[in-house]
Design a binder for these strands. Structure first.
Lengths: 136, 136
DNA sequence: TATTGTTATACTCTATAACTATA
DNA sequence: TATAGTTATAGAGTATAACAATA
């Protein structure tokens, strides 16, 4: 569906992100996860000392909104909470969470591959650096 | 805020779009418009025979969600409805809508300029073609 | 039969304020 | 004083189903 707004970078960015995130959402729904939930699983694999607030700051999710998100992951048995002190707790992957993460990697690797292949090869290497310049 | 997900094209796309749309939202709020509303004003400038359903298809907005959107624009006096037949009506800019559109163009032109300038010059020309390949 | 405009509804995502307990 | 975790709530955005009227 062509329209006269396609030449605007901001408009193209919005449409592309909406289309790709709808695609990713559908793929992750097949393994019962939302995008933000999958992001959390991927993020906490690398460290075993991240608090809910810290995860939220890294993923740009308000800590108030982390509560139901982590609640769902905990009910699904994918994460555990380890007390750091009497105020904070580390969010870590459970063994079921580690298995789920393997599924996440299969889904996201395929997704990222399909995404990149849609971009003409002469533009492809410029894609991630451009995007990261917009929010880093 | 660096994190290990930054290298993933899909993740970078989501973060960049969220950041830029938050920026654009704030700029448009200064002239009492939402992003989708501004998009409609820009789109209907070019033609005087577009129906609500047609606008929705071009902007990827469900026609059920066009109802409150156009309702707000109509209450603000920015659009008018012209009967095409007894079923359809054309959505056109009012004179106030045309004035508002001039403000929209000032805001969005500055926004698009600032956005592009954040992208390193060697990547810049590849940006819009890459994005449009993802949803066109 | 297909489409337009509409109503009603629900779910997700995001944002803010406020509270407590602890650092 | 600042931060962590939480509750409650509200505003957006998005999605589906269903309906009457008209093409």
């Amino acid at each position: 569906m062509q329209d006269p707004l396609s030449k605007l970078p901001g408009y193209a960015l919005r449409r592309a992100a909406n289309a790709m995130m709808a695609d990713l959402s559908a793929r992750l729904a097949a393994i019962d996860l939302r995008i933000a939930e999958a992001s959390v699983l991927m993020l906490i694999e690398t460290r075993y000392d991240m608090t809910s607030s810290e995860i939220g700051r890294m993923l740009d999710i308000h800590r108030a909104n982390m509560v139901p998100l982590l609640g769902r992951l905990e009910i699904a048995g994918l994460i555990e909470r380890l007390p750091i002190d009497r105020k904070s707790q580390a969010i870590i992957l459970s063994s079921a969470g580690l298995e789920k993460l393997a599924e996440v990697m299969i889904v996201t690797t395929k997704f990222e591959k399909d995404l990149l292949e849609r971009i003409p090869v002469e533009h492809r290497e410029h894609f991630v650096p451009s995007l990261n310049a917009l929010w880093h």
